[in-house]
Simulated scan of single mutants.
Amino acid sequence: MSELYPDCDPYGIADRLTEAERAPILRLRTVLESEIKPLVAEYWEKGEFPYQIAPSLHGLNLMTPEEIDGEPRSLYHGFRIFELARTDASMATFYTAQAGLFRTSCRVGASPEQFAELDPKITSFETTGVFCLTEPDHGSDIAGGLATTAERQGDEWVINGAKRWIGGAFTADYLAVFARDVADGQVKAFLVDREAPGVTLEKIYGKTALRMMQNADITLENVRVPEAQRLQNCNSFKDVAAMLRVMRSDVAWIATGIQAGAYEAALRYVRSREQFGKSLGSFQLVQEKLARMLGNVTASLSMVSDLAEKQDRGKYRDEDSALAKMWISLHMRETVALAREVVGGNGITLATDVARFHADAEAVYSYEGTHEINALVVGRSITGKSAFA
């Protein structure tokens, strides 16, 4: 077992982290356990986000921690996400909206000059932003179906369209909006001021997963954006795909963290619960389910950690991140269901934490590419044939 995760990392995969990399993760854990975890059940039930915790989370400087010299390794970034997700999926989604989605869209899509100006403000949270790709009528078919348009008029662009499921939009400074250039039909990216004339945000109600995360429907009506706020290196959907191959690996880490959180919550419960005069953890069927859950967590951790080390060697392939997101999300569903089973009737209450992980897993299963879309990305690589319609 690893020292960092003694209950859910039997092969010691986290031991690949250096002491310098473990230090900020342990600081994060302290904040999560003392300030954030006590709030999540209450705010999950209310369908609200505890924004009062944002300063503590931002102040940890997790993107560029002082202990690490230079840009942290992908493995550190992954375990940072894992630590967040094993506490709460909405917390991981909230943080990675900035540290993953927005920062990646700027890293890949901005010119070197733009990124040099933006990145220090992104890492310090001086400037915040969100990734706006999905639309009301286009999710899995967004590559060919993206309907939001951008028309250049002099030194400005006029954007019209709508975006959906945009998490974190209500507190973002900028919306990284992807729109199709009416002149050449190519997809381009724009940093749209959230308060610009013509931008309307509406909260999506009635969710049964990621209830704390505030998702928005966004309408853009004749929104004017200066050419200087166009991300200069995003000029086709191929550039968007380059962003997605990085983001999908982040979601695979979230799915792994959710499994760890659900498993640890179930383990706490069966260790403390008695039935028929015996510890619940002493029953054979319960132990079999716990073993399957731990196997899923271990296999998922192995996959994302190997993927992170591959990415650090400069090897980024669509099929690699798609395979991780597809396989881990599928097994996440099994893990959270088994956790729900071993906790019994109490597994549907927020008090045990299991119900929250069980519900939130459904959102993670679908976002950043459904199971089927990611399977087709992998299948295209395997066969050399595209099966996309």
Rank of each mutant, 00 (worst) to 15 (best):
H138P: 00
G139N: 04
D141T: 13
D141L: 06
D141C: 06
I142R: 06
I142M: 09
I142P: 02
I142A: 07
A143D: 15
A143F: 15
G145F: 05
L146C: 02
A147K: 12
A147I: 06
T148I: 07
T148E: 01
A150N: 02
E151R: 09
E151W: 00
E151C: 02
E151I: 00
R152T: 06
R152G: 05
R152N: 03
Q153R: 15
G154R: 10
G154L: 12
E156F: 13
E156K: 11
W157L: 03
V158Y: 12
I159E: 05
I159M: 07
N160D: 11
G161A: 10
A162N: 05
A162K: 11
A162R: 11
K163V: 02
R164L: 07
R164A: 03
W165M: 07
I166V: 15
I166Y: 05
G167T: 15
G167V: 13
G168I: 12
A169Y: 01
A169P: 05
A169S: 12
F170M: 13
F170C: 09
T171Y: 11
Y174K: 12
Y174F: 15
Y174P: 01
Y174V: 01
Y174T: 00
L175R: 09
L175D: 10
A176Y: 00
A176G: 05
A176C: 15
A176H: 00
V177N: 01
R180D: 10
R180T: 15
R180Q: 13
D181E: 08
V182G: 04
V182K: 04
V182Y: 03
A183N: 13
A183G: 03
G185M: 02
G185R: 06
Q186L: 14
V187S: 03
V187L: 10
V187N: 01
A189N: 07
F190R: 02
L191M: 10
L191I: 06
V192K: 00
D193N: 01
E195H: 14
A196R: 00
A196M: 01
P197A: 11
P197V: 11
P197W: 11
G198Q: 11
G198K: 08
G198S: 10
G198F: 11
V199F: 06
V199H: 07
V199D: 07
T200E: 10
T200C: 01
T200R: 10
L201A: 08
L201C: 13
E202N: 09
E202R: 09
E202H: 09
E202D: 08
K203Y: 14
K203E: 15
Y205I: 13
Y205S: 13
G206Q: 05
G206R: 03
K207E: 00
K207I: 02
T208S: 14
T208N: 14
R211M: 08
R211L: 03
M212L: 09
Q214E: 15
N215S: 12
A216E: 11
A216I: 12
A216F: 13
D217E: 08
I218Y: 06
I218A: 10
I218F: 12
I218T: 10
T219D: 12
E221G: 04
E221T: 13
E221M: 05
E221H: 09
N222G: 14
N222Y: 08
V223K: 08
V223W: 13
V223H: 10
V223P: 09
R224W: 09
R224M: 14
V225R: 03
P226D: 09
E227S: 14
A228Y: 07
Q229D: 14
Q229P: 05
R230I: 01
L231K: 00
L231E: 03
L231S: 01
L231N: 03
